[in-house]
Structure formats: structure tokens, C-alpha cells
Design a protein around this nucleic acid. Sequence first.
DNA 1: CTCCAATTGTAGCAATTGCTACAGTTGTGT
DNA 2: ACACAACTGTAGCAATTGCTACAATTGGAG
Lengths: 139, 139
Amino acid sequence: MTEAAWDSEPHQRTRRDHTTEKAEDYVEAIADILDKQDTCRITHLAKQFAVSHVTVHRIVERLQNEGLVMTKPYQPITLTAKGKRLASMCRQRHKIVYRFLLAIGIDEITAAMDAEGIEHHVSPTTLKRLEELAEELAG
Amino acid sequence: MTEAAWDSEPHQRTRRDHTTEKAEDYVEAIADILDKQDTCRITHLAKQFAVSHVTVHRIVERLQNEGLVMTKPYQPITLTAKGKRLASMCRQRHKIVYRFLLAIGIDEITAAMDAEGIEHHVSPTTLKRLEELAEELAG
DNA sequence: CTCCAATTGTAGCAATTGCTACAGTTGTGT
DNA sequence: ACACAACTGTAGCAATTGCTACAATTGGAG
């Protein structure tokens, strides 16, 4: 493996991250909405992400093809078992990153901003360490 | 501002991040290559990012429109003053994130991977704290 | 039941980032 | 000087994620 090829590995992972990032965000948001309300509709997600309902529609379509959500025309959106697992994982990861940022003294607004961007790029290894550190610093 | 609208702010920032992320990656890579060699060519970047030269060509084109790089047909790529400033900022930020990850005990390979993904999503506030923490932990 | 507002779906556009295939340049070696 | 290899550019395709404008559905109010 050449040096350049080795260096390119992180970028390749970043590309993969971006492919799944939207799926993770949406599944996480759907889980959050279904916690507060009984139904999750395209409109709710459009408001949440501040995009048009058309954009949401097509992303939900893709998520359905990937087996993460279920929906029928003009009907609300629900999570499949696979979708629920992914949502659970994402929310846990998000919470850990957010708590870590708070633990090191970042204000809530900035922590929320940064957590949203960072969460998708944290490996399990790093996530574990952040969790430990948050506990040490908070405890 | 509704609750949903408030929640959507981090996602909006994530979208902005993605728009500039590529520019930052490329400018940073160009600076790195120009440190080691006398010229930076499309081929070098294509190897670095493991994409086709066509993809690089169009991204470099965009960077030139944004005033970050300079290049003429069939000629090497150089950074403008603006590009150099951006590269410098990115490299510093990258270094801080990477060092922080090492300081908390992440192995070099994982740290390199995670730093690449995380760096673009760290606010100045958080970056400063990570720098402080890395110094404390490293002693 | 009918009509209307809200919601969802569809058509069609743009920008970005990938690709392959092919065409044009450049510079080196003979 | 010329040929060839390496590099760069162009054409044209696909997927993703944005949008507006318009069509269709649903469900509730009257």
C-alpha cells in the first residue's frame, strides 16, 4: 500500500459516513417524534430539518428501500425493527457525544450544534473513551 | 421560533459544513503536497482521495471560482493567499483534534480516521477546549 | 355528502460528486 | 523531430439532495 493510498483511507470513510449520515439523522428524528407524538408524518420531518416535504419524501423512500422505515401513500411513517435498532444506536451515540461536550464545559447550544455534526464520525473506540471521560469529569 | 425550528439549526449547520468540507479537505491536501514536493497536480490529489482525476478536476475548478486555488490548463495547482489561510486554519484544527484523540488514548490509526471526519464539525469554542484538554492530559 | 385545508405525491429543474470513455497536451527520450 | 506515456480536459451517465409548481388524497367542518 502506497503512502498516498494509506492517507486516503480516512477520506473513504468520510464518504461512507455521508452516505449513511442522512439515514441516521432521519431515523433518529423519527424515533424522537414518535416518542412525543403518536404519529410521524413527512411534514414533521420537513419542519425538523427545515427542508421541503419533497426532499423528505424522497429520503423516506430511500429509507424504505433500505428497510429502515415503513409507510404507505398518504400515511404516517413507522420504524422497522432494523430502523429502531439504528435509531437506538444513534441516540445513544448522540447522547454520549453531547454529554461529553457538556462535561468539558461547552455551552448547551454549541454542544448541540457540534454533537450533531460530530456524532456520525466517531468510531466505537473513540465513543467509548468519550463516555468514560464524560463520567470521570462529571462524576 | 418553534421548537422544531430550533432543533433544525444544527442540521442546517451540518449542511453548510458539507458544502465547505470538500474545499477544506482539498486545500489542506494541496498544502501538504506542496510541502513535500514542488508541484501539486490533479493526479496527486486523485491518488490522495482515491477518486478519479475527473472528480478532482471539477472540484479544483470550483475552488478556483471561489478564489482558493490558481491553475491554468495542463498546469500544476497553487494556492492563493486566501487558500493558504484556509489551509493553515484547517491544518491547525486537524492537528488539535488529532492530538486530542491521541491524548485521550486513541490509537494513531483510529485517531487519524476520526480526526478526518470530526474536524469539519468542531466549533471554535469546542476546538479551544480540546486544545486545552490535550495539553493537560499530555502534561 | 360536499367542500376545503392540510398533507402527500409527481414532474422537472439545479448543484455536487462520483464514474467510464475518449480527446487533447506536454514533455521526455530516442 | 517525432512518438509515446503520462497527464489533463471534455462528454455524458448516475445518485443524492435541494427547490418550485402543480396534482392527488385524506379527513374533518358544515
